[in-house]
């Protein structure tokens, strides 16, 4: 399949990248290409220029930084899934990355690309939401930080301006929180029909704090605030879990398609949340 012609740049620094993108109206960032190149093949995108971020040193690497985990935007899913710092500080992020697509996709696709693409059924958006991560962005106007909760706006829609580039994702450490990501993949596409990212702090028989994020269910990943409120400070019981499960998607416009009706997705989101919480609760 022949791709249309485009200009290709491979900057070595962030400044150079921002300059090159600014020079061609409509230029797009190229990260792993796992979403952008298929869009170009389908002629759903036809950028006049691609600015490849693979050579930009500022965007690679996973580090501990003042009590937080700093993940460069060009970190590939496979690296995220196996990095010891990620496993230690943000196990649900590693778990989500290990379930993206297939090995080939995980060796190319990046966290920056996945968040910027914002597929409504993607895995990493749920992970960064549940972890209260911050997305660090650079543009010709300077640097800024976008909290994950303000980042996802709709299907393939984010708070990024076209000339914004994600530099890193910063994940605050959650010490004693227990974390998990549970995905119910569509059997053909592998994308989440429902994906639940959960991080809970258990104190004796009570839920001291809970963060639950949901993907695959609505136009973008979201936090299940009502469910979190019900859990916080409460003694964990079956009755509480049942109530929590019933409100996971409340307030959301749940979508249905050929494969899974809205009712089924709502049910599955509740059930999966319940199962994740039960598993985390009994974890040693």
């Amino acid at each position: 399949m022949m791709l249309g012609a485009f200009q290709y740049e491979r900057p070595a620094s962030l400044d150079e990248a921002l300059r090159q993108a600014a020079a061609v109206p409509g230029a797009r960032w190229l990260a792993g290409g796992m979403s952008l190149l298929p869009l170009m093949k389908m002629e759903l995108a036809d950028p006049p220029a691609l600015v490849d971020l693979a050579g930009v040193a500022d965007l690679v690497g996973v580090q501990e930084d003042g009590g937080a985990l700093r993940v460069g935007a060009m970190t590939r899913h496979a690296e995220l899934a196996e990095h010891p710092l990620v496993a230690r500080h943000a196990p649900l992020l590693a778990a989500a990355a290990s379930q993206v697509g297939d090995p080939q996709v995980r060796h190319r696709g990046t966290i920056g690309g996945s968040l910027a693409h914002a597929d409504p059924a993607a895995d990493l958006p749920a992970a960064v939401l549940a972890l209260d991560a911050t997305i660090e962005v650079a543009s010709p106007r300077g640097r800024r930080e976008i909290p994950a909760k303000d980042f996802f706006l709709g299907p393939l829609m984010t708070a990024l301006e076209p000339d914004d580039v994600i530099v890193a994702v910063v994940v605050p450490q959650r010490g004693a929180h227990r974390q998990a990501y549970h995905k119910r993949p569509h059997p053909a596409s592998g994308y989440a029909v429902v994906g639940i990212a959960a991080s809970v702090l258990r104190e004796a028989d009570r839920v001291a704090s809970a963060a639950i994020a949901v993907t695959g269910v609505a136009s973008h990943a979201f936090r299940a605030r009502r469910a979190e409120e019900l859990l916080t400070g409460q003694v964990m019981t079956d009755a509480l879990l049942a109530e929590v499960a019933s409100v996971v998607a409340s307030g959301q416009e749940v979508w249905g398609d050929l494969y899974a009706s809205a009712d089924y997705r709502r049910h599955l989101a509740g059930l999966t949340t319940r199962q994740v919480l039960e598993r985390l609760w009994d974890d040693r």
């Binding site: 399949m1 791709l3 290709y8 491979r10 190229l30 290409g33 796992m34 190149l37 298929p38 490849d52 693979a54 496979a78 090995p103 080939q104 996709v105 060796h107 190319r108």
Partner: peptide, 15 residues
């Protein structure tokens, strides 16, 4: 590519 499996139909040679 450097030992990792990738789908060659979804990567540019110049990448």
């Amino acid at each position: 590519v450097n030992g990792d499996p990738i789908k060659s139909c979804t990567v540019l040679a110049v990448q």
